[in-house]
Design a protein around this nucleic acid. Structure first.
Length: 905
RNA sequence: GCGGGCGUGGCGGAAUUGGUAGACGCACCGGACUUAAAAUCCGUUGGGAGGCGACUCCCGUGCCGGUUCAAGUCCGGCCGCCCGCACCA
């Protein structure tokens, strides 16, 4: 007999000590490899559920991160019990700027700080009971992983898009015209480079000389860096990926995906497909022609000027002596502007070049301008100005007093008609054509503009003056970064001007050690300092070469990581084709919506290339996508709208908050968790107070996974309260189980299993928790069989895995509970057990009462019962046509639900 | 400007293809147990009116209208909020 020491609380069989219990089962799972997933065997039902893997930051996880991780964990555990072979891995998107900045300041190698951060993340994930198969862990910054990132890069580099076949093919399959061959190997290289999926191009970037680095558009404000240093747009030679070749397929294949409509729409928008016509305007007095792109070729008659982007190759070409200096100054000034300064709100500006172009249809001469509202990389970088029917052209024409010539009539009864026809107002809506200027055979006055558009396009194509094209907003992907902590780009530039990728057997090309992570001060990454690494000599020919110093962008590793998880230790292939095929696409992918047009687009692009090159068996990587909602914390706001940290505010009275330093009354608001607001909550804190199971249950019960919500740690107490009830309930029944269930319990159990299974299949985890609570409400204090108890423990298990394991073991089950089968329930059995149901009687849709009847009562009985009830309430029921009395039965079960009588009297 | 989403009690949120609005929980209030507190348990709670009473009636899902035997759900028009993308010719 054990003796309880004075002052110590008795640790009875009945107490729920979550800390000890959760420690026990964490160790058990690790020791017995419970979460390990084998390669699928033939005939296995497979399920691949994936989280967007995190960048392991120094701060560790806060409570917002696991929203998605918990949802996928619950689904993975459920699917496993339901008989699927489940892949549910985790890894690290571990290349990135924060680790490099940290290294700049401290000299600590990014690999070292990253490794430490990963340990923290793993410890926290283990704490929460996330059942990842850690034997499949990968990190994008490790050579055995980025070897294959580099491998894929070289395959993309050595491929071209065969527009006729509609797919990528190896560059060797590209036919080289004889004249190109004859011109030598550099000519051949140039010919291939124009078609490769990876290519070099000189493109304008935001270059900050003071910081010695390129900045993203988002990092440039009013032409200055965040620190106030000047930023210029300079053309730099960049590695790019030809994602635009896949624009059409990236749009088309969205249709088959089970993704949130908003994300699909974002991608469609980003790719920005539009159908139009390119046509060329001859420049008067020269041999040049200016190509323009328009979606509204019907307005060709209204062209009163042409405008070229400052970056247009011909922008400075036509300026005559009087205008040259002004044009060059304008182009120079435009180059200094950031994209931000050239946005919508900015005033339209431009300069006249002194040259004129001729309208190919009307023969009319129009002035040629250079204007920075014209984007260099959309369409042809030149627009035909139609001020009467385009708001931007209208603003420009008004400013420079150019003609405004309407060609579309708003319609006889439109109030703005006179102003539009007088050229005083811009008209962009529907209308019919005015008589065509010049060639009157083009179209008739009065035809709809859409018809005129086709007629003019036909005419231009027939005359060879233009052709229909599809244009996209999507730009090719600038793939080079001047940073250290990324995958080295495995390209060597040889002294004879040729360029090759590293042979695949020499991969990985690992990062060299360098002495300083600081920027180089010119447009090269710190890798340029590693001279031993940089300079190479071909052992066969003795030719010298220099490695590419740029590294890949952070998105590279995440473009294919979901494939590597299938076969993470394979040294001979990025993934074994059979294993790749056995798992197929990711069945459920959960992560934040911020990746809509970044990671999710890039990964789809790489996947399609890999599909074309025969590495994967599916067209798309992620079949179903769910965006988890943002979890916010709170902060306070004073009357001037300033956000204040939580630890500077006290609650004086109920709902009354005082800012301690100033004494002012402040308002409680929802706010993102951030260091500066001191409102970051870590899962460690919550688990220590309430346990991991309570954290899981509470987080899932808060609301739908997709919804945004506000975190309040104290509220976790209600989940703990529920779990304590579960504990008392189950241990109580185990002490004295009934031989048979009470009838209500038997029904409640069947309902529970049916409902929770459906909820899990549809990722409705909040109502799933509610089902567990409902069952408990129904079953407490009733006679419960051991069998029913075991059913309950099993459906509890995905949500509260630690407690479920413990209870399962105490109930005599063989651990782990996750080896047990998911319980089944028979809906028909449930129906058969129901003797009577409450039938609601309505009059005109309003509830008037209810009667107890057999679930399969016939219409006649039901109608009579309804009328009898209403008659009893003194309603005039005589003469009600029976066919207008509606009987409603449950569509699934056939059980009668309600009877509606039309409004009486 | 364009696109996507959302408006339900004091709060988080439930409500199959239209069929009992407010499941489940939080908070509040009342009660039980306790010397007391904590914990636990029981009960009440959308608003209003009536009845001693188990109850009855009216109103109610952002606003206005429509379709229907029946509307939170469908249709049309507004209002408000959130999130993307934005000189894309």
């Amino acid at each position: 007999m054990s003796r309880i020491e004075p002052g110590k609380r008795a640790m009875t069989e009945q107490s729920y000590d979550f800390t000890a219990l959760e420690t026990k089962w964490r160790d058990f799972w690790d020791k017995h490899g419970v979460n390990k997933t084998p390669h699928p065997a033939p005939g296995d039902k497979t399920f691949y559920v994936l989280d967007m893997f995190p960048y392991p930051s120094g701060a560790g996880l806060h409570v917002g991160h696991p929203v998605g991780y918990l949802a996928t964990d619950i689904v993975a555990r459920y699917k496993k019990m339901a008989g699927y072979t489940v892949l549910h891995p985790m890894g690290w998107d571990s290349f990135g700027l924060p680790a490099e900045r940290y290294a700049e300041r401290t000299g600590v190698h990014p690999a070292v700080s990253t490794e430490k951060n990963i340990e923290t993340y793993k410890r926290q994930m283990r704490l929460l009971g996330l059942g990842y198969d850690w034997s499949r862990e990968i990190a994008t910054s490790k050579p055995d992983y980025y070897k294959w990132t580099q491998f894929i890069f070289t395959r993309l580099y050595n491929a071209f898009y065969d527009a006729e076949a509609g797919r990528a093919r190896p560059i060797d399959a590209l036919d080289i015209p004889d004249d190109v061959k004859a011109a030598g190997k550099l000519a051949v290289q140039e010919y291939q480079d124009e078609r490769r999926l990876v290519y070099y191009e000189t493109a304008p970037v935001n270059w900050c000389p003071e910081l010695g680095t390129i900045l993203a558009n988002e990092e440039v404000f009013d032409g200055k860096s965040e620190q106030g240093y000047e930023v210029v747009r300079v053309p730099l030679r960049q590695v790019k990926m030809r994602i635009t070749a896949y624009a059409e397929r990236l749009i088309a294949d969205l249709d088959g995906l089970d993704w949130p409509e908003g994300i699909k729409e974002s991608q469609r928008n980003w790719i920005g497909k539009s159908e139009g016509v390119t046509l060329s305007f001859p420049v008067a007095g020269t041999d040049h022609r200016i190509e323009t792109f328009t979606t509204r070729v019907d307005t060709l008659g209204g062209v009163t000027f042409l405008a070229l982007a400052p970056e247009h190759p011909l922008a400075a070409e036509f300026a005559d002596a009087d205008h040259r200096a002004e044009v060059e100054a304008y182009i120079e000034a435009a180059a200094r502007k950031s994209d931000l300064d050239r946005t919508v709100d900015a005033e339209k500006t431009g300069v006249f070049t002194g040259a004129e172009a001729e309208n190919p249809v009307t023969g009319k001469r129009v002035k040629i301008f250079v204007a920075d509202y014209v984007l260099p990389d959309y369409g042809t970088g030149a627009v035909m100005g139609v001020p009467a029917h385009d708001v931007r052209d209208f603003a420009f024409a008004t400013k420079y007093r150019l003609d405004i010539v309407p060609v579309i009539d708003p319609g006889a009864d439109h109030p703005d008609r006179a102003a539009v026809l007088a050229g005083e107002q811009c008209w962009t809506e529907d209308g019919v054509m005015l008589a065509p200027p010049g060639d009157s055979s083009l179209y008739q006055a009065g035809v709809r503009w859409r018809d005129a558009r086709e007629a003019v396009a036909d005419h231009l194509e027939a005359k060879g003056l233009g052709h229909r094209v599809t244009s996209y907003n999507l730009r090719d992907w600038i793939f080079a970064r001047q940073r250290y902590w990324g995958e080295p780009i495995p390209i060597v530039h040889w002294e004879d001007g040729t360029r090759t990728t590293l042979p695949e057997d020499q991969l990985p090309l690992t990062l060299p050690h360098i002495d300083s992570y600081k920027p180089t001060g010119h447009a090269e990454s710190p890798l340029a300092r590693a001279e031993d690494w940089l300079e190479v000599t071909d052992p066969q020919t003795g030719m010298k070469g220099r490695r590419e110093t740029s590294t890949m962008p952070q998105w590279a590793g995440s473009c294919w990581y979901y494939l590597r998880f299938k076969d993470p230790r394979n040294d001979n292939a990025l993934v074994d084709p059979e294993i790749e095929n056995a798992w197929g696409s990711v069945d459920l992918y959960v992560g934040g919506a911020e990746h809509a047009t970044l990671h999710l687009l890039y990964a789809r692009f790489w996947h399609k290339v890999l599909f074309d090159l025969g590495f994967v068996s599916t067209k798309e990587p992620f079949q179903k996508l769910v965006n988890q909602g943002l979890l916010t914390s709170h902060a306070f706001k004073n009357e001037r709208g300033i956000t204040l940290p939580v630890d500077e505010v006290e609650e004086r009275a109920e709902g009354e908050f005082i800012h301690t330093p100033t004494g002012e009354t402040v308002e409680k608001i929802g706010a993102k968790m951030s260091k500066s607001l001191h409102n970051v909550v870590t899962p460690d804190d919550v688990v220590a107070r309430f346990g991991a199971d309570a954290f899981r249950v509470h987080m899932m019960f808060m609301g739908p996974v997709e919804a945004m919500r506000e975190w309040e740690t104290d509220r976790t107490a209600s989940a703990l309260k529920f779990l304590r009830r579960v504990w008392r309930f189950v241990t109580g029944v185990l002490d004295s189980p009934a031989g048979e269930d009470a009838k209500t319990v038997r029904l409640a159990r069947t309902k529970l299993v049916l409902a929770i299974t459906e909820d899990l299949d549809n990722l409705r985890l909040n109502t799933g928790v509610a089902e567990l609570m409902k069952f408990l409400n129904a079953a407490e204090g009733e006679a419960i069989s051991k069998e029913t108890l075991e059913v309950f423990i099993r459906v509890l298990a995905p949500f509260a895995p630690f407690m479920a394991e413990e209870l399962w073991e105490r109930a005599g089950g063989q651990p782990s509970v996750f080896y047990a089968d998911w319980p089944e329930a028979d809906a028909a059995e449930l129906e058969a057990a129901i003797d009577t149901v409450e039938v609601v009687i309505q009059e005109g849709g309003k509830r008037r009462g209810a009667v107890e009847l057999a679930p399969d009562a016939d219409d006649e009985t039901l109608r009579a019962a309804a009328l009898a009830l209403l008659d009893g309430q003194g309603k005039p029921v005589t003469g009600v046509p029976l066919e207008r009395v509606i009987v409603v039965r449950d569509k699934k079960t056939g059980r009668v639900k309600l009877v509606n009588v039309p409004k009486l009297g």
